[in-house]
Amino acid sequence: MNVPLSSPDIGQRERELVNEVLAGSILSMGPKVEQFERMVAEYLGVKEAVAVSSGTSGLHLAVRALGIGEGDEVITTPFSFVASSNCILYERARPVFVDIDPLTLNIDPEGIEAKITPRTRAILPVHVFGRPADMAVIMDIAKKHGLYVIEDACEAVGASYNGKMAGSEGDAGVFAFYPNKQITTAEGGIISTNSTELAGLCRSMRNQGRIDGKKWLDHCHLGYNYRMDELSAALGVAQMERIDEILAKREAVARAYNARLGRLKGVTLPHMEPGIKISWFVYVIRLDPGISRDRVMTYLQEKGVDCRPYFPPVHLQPFYRETFGYREGDYPNAERAASATLALPFFNNLTEQQMDYVVEVLEQAISRAA
């Protein structure tokens, strides 16, 4: 049996709305983009949402719109997809890493204040794997020190912390809708904020620096082509119409995995805690020390089960080693997690038969890799 790592959930409604766009004359920055923005803003409970071409472009615009620039520092996590740190470097600021909590795998808030310097301008927590970071503590620290907060919620649409939606508390939140995400626009992302001024600046910069009321070839800010097209937004509208259904499907798959994997020795399941609503982006287990994760992966892939090592830590990526001189041992919790985590096939319509096969092959792999 071949089981893919992810598979988008695209139905008739998505096709209808995409065809509706194709039947018209507007393919970029039209009514579907505006509708998608309104739906996301309402869902998150924020004033503004700005659709962009990707989560990465959204993070870049958020950093730039807040005036973070050369010589500034932004505190973030090394256990993330590399874009959360790259977006800081785009503006010649520097990411300053804080190690992670070994249970939640999110940035450890107890380590943040020790990294604050006169150059610190912001904190950029990442809601890793759809689990919200400890935003109550992070927001208190930011308020105390006069820092901005940019929430990387690219993996966390629909997640909440003590009833507050991920991406709704910071100065800006950013979501991504790549095909492996909970909802997809094929390519695309969105910036959430309660600041009308920040939203307006991001809207201008995503569209080559243009602003409403000016001529098309007037460029009032340094801008980029970070626009979302109408076809992508049409997908997003259809997906948002059934986001509750989609998230419920993913939670059901996660619970089914928990029930099956709970009996396996050598496997640690995703950490659960009260007050946290996980939006299941991926299903990531951790293998005990002494079990070769690479050998497990090789066996799974030989048997047709796709899998990934989520995440290699950012500070040990070749570019970051060469540029900043990071070494193994700098952030031990992130490094231990990175060496043990394994993402299993996970998507809305994963079948019981597929899950049974994944667990069966995983058990075989562990017995061979121990």
Results as ranks from 00 to 15, higher is better:
122 A>L: 11
116 I>Q: 08
144 K>P: 00
170 G>D: 05
97 F>E: 10
185 T>N: 03
217 L>Y: 15
78 P>H: 03
210 R>P: 04
8 P>T: 14
131 R>F: 15
78 P>C: 01
262 G>L: 02
5 L>T: 02
368 R>L: 15
232 S>I: 00
66 L>V: 08
361 V>R: 12
33 V>H: 01
249 K>E: 09
149 V>K: 09
3 V>D: 03
274 P>I: 13
150 I>C: 07
221 H>C: 06
308 R>N: 10
243 I>L: 14
312 P>H: 02
229 D>K: 03
356 D>E: 15
60 H>L: 04
212 D>I: 08
227 R>H: 07
79 F>T: 01
159 A>Q: 09
250 R>T: 01
143 K>R: 15
150 I>H: 09
331 Y>E: 10
118 P>Y: 04
327 R>F: 02
364 Q>W: 11
178 Y>V: 12
333 N>W: 01
140 D>F: 01
350 L>K: 05
199 A>F: 09
265 K>L: 05
147 L>G: 08
21 V>R: 02
354 Q>E: 15
14 E>H: 12
328 E>R: 13
26 I>E: 12
105 L>V: 03
75 I>R: 05
269 L>D: 09
236 G>I: 05
54 S>A: 10
196 T>D: 14
1 M>H: 08
9 D>Q: 04
250 R>F: 05
300 L>P: 01
92 R>L: 11
37 E>C: 14
178 Y>C: 04
23 A>M: 11
179 P>V: 08
98 V>D: 10
286 R>Q: 13
281 F>Y: 14
323 T>C: 06
129 F>R: 10
73 E>Q: 09
294 D>N: 11
19 N>K: 13
78 P>S: 01
104 T>K: 11
214 K>P: 00
202 C>Y: 06
163 G>E: 09
201 L>Q: 08
142 A>C: 05
325 G>I: 13
99 D>R: 12
216 W>A: 15
313 P>M: 06
273 E>C: 02
213 G>I: 15
78 P>E: 04
106 N>S: 13
252 A>Q: 09
123 I>G: 03
47 K>Q: 07
